[in-house]
Design a protein around this nucleic acid. Structure first.
Lengths: 292, 292
DNA sequence: CGTTAGCATCTGCTAATCTAATGGCTATGG
DNA sequence: CCATAGCCATTAGATTAGCAGATGCTAACG
């Protein structure tokens, strides 16, 4: 059984048609047909139900499907393992929550990039759910997400622990005073943001529900909106830099149980850690000790 | 990267030469050279140090080596998974200790073979160490061995529990009486037999050491030798069939701690269980309940 | 200094693979 | 009821990859 045939099979199954698969694979449909037929002959089973509308996996095809991905991933990993001589180099693609970048990661990233000039560092941001999805799809080697994360395919290591604070305009003297301001909004970074749900929980526990949302793409915009008394938000206390400390924003401390949030670094359990990634993890731990 | 290239690489690495690998792969040396070269080009690393004496893996080659086997195993498993529609069929190759076959397994095997006519059952016997080795090499789908077995790559399930007895000629009235018979021998099935070490321990704890060994290939021969007072052996008590019960052999009971031996069924954790194997395991459990 | 063992390279040949064109099938839509 | 479009199978011809066998090269060994 040829790995290329398996990859062809996978594309056909995923796209639901030989023509579409051919297009994705930069070849023509007859080749795809031939490869699939050969695979079917080699296995002695029928993998697709053909119809005018396209192709549909048979039971046998469904059983084969997971292996297609695994074989491809294993071959890719073999290549990386052979090339990786222990000296960090190549491309390191990691993900992170936007707040983590702003608060903790950017200096660490900068020093890492400086000390490892042979590594092309790629950072993608997203919500916890998005990032975990991408790690599972092997699009990211690892990601900083909001913990705890328990998943059989992932290894999660706690790296930072933040204290969240409820932020409002200075005129809001206490959390309780928010109750009488139903026009206030939840100012959030993005729809699926990890802190949004936590914020709603925090407010709900104090009888504040049904607030409208206001979504901004950047932290600066969020802080600006809060300062302008458009609403409240929930962010790591340490995030409020000097520029915002001068009375423009009031941070309301929360009880430990509500405030604590840990950032974990997750990566696939079955994925070879590149030297670049290993060095990165060491670097983060070391710098964290320095910073903390 | 082609899986066939990887297999060629693996053969060259294992045999330490391209010519030898070519012979094993039923091809000629120039083809092997070409495949290795292509693999090296694709990876951008040198995999072998060539010399007049043959080939030796480089560091990169050593890193790649484990993947060669894994890719091959994964492809083979993919084929089995696609073909296996849940109805037990094909070849089921399992291993067992000889004593386990004689004592417990043979009726179970017979009924399994009868109820699953589409399965070609292959049984290989050997010592615990040999069998485990073969399971790890994927030559056996599973094996009945002497437990307990703790190994990160294996799953072990206890299936039988035997009570061992020290067997001697009837003239030996007690274990203690063996002390005065230094000419007695340990009668054992095979050099690496699981029960041999246990027998030596049992005797050593009673001050009997340094007995010579007598090795026979079959259980009947062993029991015959014991009956003829050539020596003593250690076997499951239940093994002594009616033919031997009639005073020709004396079974000396041992304390529970020494007598208990469990038979476990082991198989690779990462290996897909064929339907034939799954059915077999169910069958064993069911029949064990009936027999026990 | 020839012999040997081993890898590299070259050369035809063959088989596999690719491309492009064609044909058959079926649902859709006038 | 025909035209059309989308999809897969098949075919034929061109291209490429893979194979076997012969030859070359190098270092070790007697």
């Amino acid at each position: 059984m040829d790995a290329k045939d398996l990859a062809t099979f996978e594309a056909v199954a995923r796209l639901g048609g030989m023509g579409r698969a051919a297009h994705e694979l930069n070849t023509v449909q007859s080749n795809v047909t031939q490869r699939v037929r050969r695979l079917e002959e080699a296995l002695g089973v029928c993998l697709f139900e053909r119809s005018r509308a396209g192709t549909k996996l048979t039971r046998a095809g469904e059983r084969l499907m997971p292996y297609a991905g695994r074989v491809g991933a294993l071959l890719a990993e073999a290549g990386r393992a052979a090339r990786d001589d222990g000296a960090p180099r190549g491309t390191l693609t990691i993900g992170s929550l936007e707040t983590t970048v702003a608060l903790r990661l950017s200096p660490v990233l900068a020093t890492y990039a400086r000390t490892h000039p042979d590594v092309d560092l790629v950072l993608r941001t997203g919500t916890t759910a998005e990032l975990i999805e991408r790690v599972l799809d092997r699009e990211l080697e690892g990601a900083f997400v909001c913990g705890p994360v328990v998943h059989p395919l992932l290894i999660a290591a706690s790296v930072f622990e933040e204290e969240l604070a409820l932020l409002s305009a200075p005129s809001q003297r206490s959390v309780a005073s928010l109750l009488v301001r139903p026009d206030l909004r939840l100012v959030i970074l993005r729809a699926g943001c990890s802190y949004r749900q936590r914020l709603e929980e925090v407010l709900a526990r104090r009888g504040i529900v049904g607030l409208r949302r206001l979504e901004f793409g950047t932290l600066e915009a969020i802080l600006g909106a809060v300062a302008a008394d458009l609403g409240v938000t929930l962010l790591p206390h340490a995030l409020i830099g000097p520029a915002w400390r001068g009375g423009r924003i009031r941070a309301h401390r929360l009880p430990k149980a509500e405030a604590r949030v840990q950032t974990v670094f997750v990566h696939r359990r079955d994925m070879l850690c590149s030297s670049a990634l290993t060095a990165f993890q060491k670097h983060v731990v070391k710098r964290k000790a320095e910073l903390g």
